[in-house]
């Protein structure tokens, strides 16, 4: 497949990926309180994912630095990025912060966010693994039937 149709396929695939969410948002009636809760949830999920994956990438810098002369600059840069995420989370979830959901304080909110992330990530990972296996099962069964 040439480059241009490939890009078009990926663009349409990206749109299809968000299509079910768009349809559900349109057909499910959302009140004002739902909208503000939705925004708080988006921001909490964004900050938590950003911070946790940044920490994960710092750990993975071990591998990268082994293949170079153990440079410090990428480590320091990535650590700053993760610290920024932590500071933003604390600042925005402290008393009166707009990211505080049903929790009493910043620490409770951050811990809730981490557990929330685990459950959400588990749901997404299960969905991805199912997709990969189902695709394989279908592809291998087609080869088998041909024989």
């Amino acid at each position: 497949m040439s480059e241009s149709p490939k890009q078009r396929v990926m663009l349409i695939a990206g749109f299809i990926l968000i299509l079910p969410s768009l349809v559900l948002v349109i057909i499910s009636s959302s009140s004002d309180s739902d909208l503000s809760r939705g925004f708080a949830r988006f921001a909490n999920a964004f900050l938590t994912t950003y911070t946790l994956t940044s920490i994960f990438f710092i750990v993975n810098m071990f591998r990268y630095s082994k293949s170079r002369n153990e440079p410090k600059a990428p480590w320091i840069g990535m650590s700053y990025a993760a610290i920024l995420g932590v500071i933003a989370s604390i600042a925005l979830t402290s008393q009166g912060g707009f990211l505080l959901e049903d929790n009493s304080g910043s620490r409770a909110q951050i811990l809730t966010n981490v557990v929330h992330f685990i459950v959400t990530a588990l749901a997404v990972m299960v969905a991805i693994v199912i997709m990969i296996f189902v695709a394989f099962v279908n592809i291998t069964s087609r080869n088998q039937n041909k024989q």
Partner: peptide
């Protein structure tokens, strides 16, 4: 509605951390 916000938040957070990395 909250799950949709969650998924978009996760995608955006993951995207930003990959860009920074």
């Amino acid at each position: 509605w909250l799950a949709t916000s969650d998924l978009f938040g996760i995608l955006a957070g993951l995207g930003l951390s990959i860009i920074v990395f």
